[in-house]
């Protein structure tokens, strides 16, 4: 029965959700230049400084030049950061400034609004992932046409990271509280998800901790696609991501309802 209750909080991917997507596009088109710059400046610097700068001194990792090793991981983290920052900060400010409220004052339901945010952030994830893919393609760091599947992976990653981020956005009473999420969850995940170093040879305990990070699985799949190195173990990553996405999806609905209806 509890499970049925959980399903009732499922976001509604209906026409209302598409309208929310429309609204976000309309607003985004007004400020996308700064937003894109912010999202690409940092990973690009990481790639240049670490990949080519530090990489010149690092021996090969898993038979790969350092830049080639970290590029697919940075692709995954760029998409994650884009989604997580946008959902947490703009989600929070949309709550604060009455944007969602204007929607529920009209005909939209909280379930549709939440679904609209999932759709929107999945789109952004695809945009960020693909733009970064083009950048590393130009740098000669893409090895396989399987990279064409990156958009599919980005949809999945976008949906996954939106759930907890929107929950945090609706949970935080003040914007400051969002930094807990970044400091305690997002930054460690960025550092310890196999982006900068291989995790296969770490002690078992560390490997298990890293296995819990969603970004680790996105990174694994991204690297496999960009480099064309497929192996059966990747199905485990796919399954992990799908289960986590489904389980986390209803999570923000209750919190959004608490903020928007009483």
């Amino acid at each position: 029965m509890r499970f049925l209750g959980y399903l009732k909080r499922w976001p509604h991917f209906d026409r209302g959700a598409v309208r929310v997507w429309d609204r976000n596009l309309m607003a985004w088109l007004k400020y996308y230049k700064t937003s894109v710059l912010m999202n690409f400046g940092e990973p690009l610097m990481n790639l240049l400084a670490l990949g080519f700068g530090l990489g010149a001194y690092v021996t090969k990792l898993n038979d790969l030049p350092f830049a080639e090793f970290i590029a697919p991981g940075l692709l995954a983290s760029t998409a994650m950061m884009g989604v997580v920052y946008d959902t947490a900060f703009s989600g929070h400010s949309m709550l604060d400034r009455g944007v969602y409220e204007s929607m529920v004052t009209g005909p939209l339901r909280v379930e549709s609004i939440t679904a609209g945010m999932f759709l929107w952030e999945a789109s952004r994830s695809v945009l960020y992932g693909c733009t970064f893919l083009v950048v590393i393609l130009v740098m000669g760091l893409v090895r396989s046409p399987l990279a064409l599947l990156i958009p599919v992976l980005m949809v999945l990653a976008g949906l996954l990271f939106t759930g907890p981020s929107l929950f945090v956005a609706a949970w935080a009473k003040a914007e400051d509280q969002l930094f807990y999420y970044f400091t305690l969850v997002i930054t460690p995940m960025f550092m310890f998800s196999g982006i900068f170093f291989p995790v296969e040879n770490l002690p078992a305990a560390a490997r298990w901790a890293i296995w819990l990070s969603p970004l680790y699985h996105v990174t694994n799949l991204s690297r496999a696609l960009v480099l064309g190195r497929l192996h059966p173990g990747l199905w485990g990553d796919v399954l992990w991501l799908m289960v986590a996405t489904i389980v986390l999806m209803p999570w923000p609905v209750t919190q959004m309802r608490r903020r928007l209806t009483a």
Binding site: R23, M26, A27, K30, E101, S102
Partner: peptide
């Protein structure tokens, strides 16, 4: 409370609302 969409113009506010309906 007015709860207009502050990111958008007068026209966009109305148009989106019509689309919500």
């Amino acid at each position: 409370e007015n709860n207009l969409d502050p990111d958008l113009t007068v026209w966009e506010n109305l148009y989106l609302y019509a689309r919500y309906f």
